Amino acid sequence: MKTRIVAAGVAALLITIGLAGKALAETIKIGATAGHHAEILEKVKPIAAKKGLDIVIVEFSDYVVPNTALDAGELNANSFQHQPYLDNQKADRGFRIESVATTVNFPMGIYSKKHKSWETVPNGATISIPNDPTNGGRALLLLQDRGIIKLKEGVGFKPSPIDIVDNPKKLRFLEVDAAQTPRSLEDVDAAAVNTNYATPAGLDPKDAILREDPKGPYVNVIAVRSVDKDKPWVKTLVEAYHTPEVKAFVAEKWKGSVLSSW
Rank of each mutant, 00 (worst) to 15 (best):
S112M: 09
A139F: 00
A7D: 08
G137R: 03
A8K: 08
E186P: 02
L86R: 03
H36V: 15
Y218S: 07
I55D: 04
R183D: 12
G109R: 03
L185P: 00
A248G: 07
N194H: 08
N135T: 11
A198P: 01
W233P: 01
Q144P: 00
I5V: 14
Q89T: 12
T103I: 12
D71G: 00
T236L: 09
K113V: 08
A38E: 11
L151Y: 03
S257N: 11
T134V: 05
V246F: 02
L53D: 08
K170D: 12
S128L: 10
A191Q: 04
P214K: 05
I149M: 01
V193H: 03
A34N: 11
V100E: 11
L141G: 02
A48G: 09
N220P: 00
N105G: 10
R93G: 08
S261E: 15
E153H: 01
R225Q: 12
G31Y: 05
A179I: 13
G147V: 09
S117H: 05
L86S: 05
N76P: 07
S160N: 09
I129Y: 03
A179N: 10
L86P: 04
R146Q: 10
I127W: 01
F157Q: 05
G216N: 05
Q81N: 12
V246S: 02
S184K: 11
V65R: 14
K43Q: 15
K247G: 08
E175M: 15
A201D: 04
Q81M: 15
T33C: 10
A12E: 07
G73T: 14
A48S: 11
A34M: 14
E239R: 04
F106M: 13
A72L: 09
G52Y: 01
I110G: 01
K215C: 06
Y218V: 11
P214Q: 05
E239A: 10
A38G: 07
N220V: 02
Q180L: 15
V258E: 12
A91V: 12
S257V: 06
Q81T: 14
D145R: 07
T236N: 02
H242A: 15
K90I: 15
V193N: 02
V6C: 06
V10K: 00
A11D: 03
A191H: 00
V64L: 12
F249M: 13
K50C: 01
S160G: 11
D187H: 11
N167L: 05
L141E: 00
E74L: 15
K206A: 15
V6Q: 06
H82Q: 07
D71I: 03
P182L: 07
I148G: 00
D189F: 07
K169P: 00
N194K: 04
V64R: 08
H36G: 10
I162H: 00
L203E: 00
K231D: 12
K114A: 10
L24M: 12
K45F: 06
D204N: 15
D166V: 07
K150S: 09
I209A: 01
P84I: 14
R96N: 13
K45I: 06
D163R: 04
Y241H: 13
A240H: 12
V224I: 09
A23K: 06
K29I: 09
G136Q: 05
D87I: 08
R183L: 14
I222P: 00
F173L: 06
K113E: 06
L24R: 10
L41H: 08
D54G: 04
R93V: 03
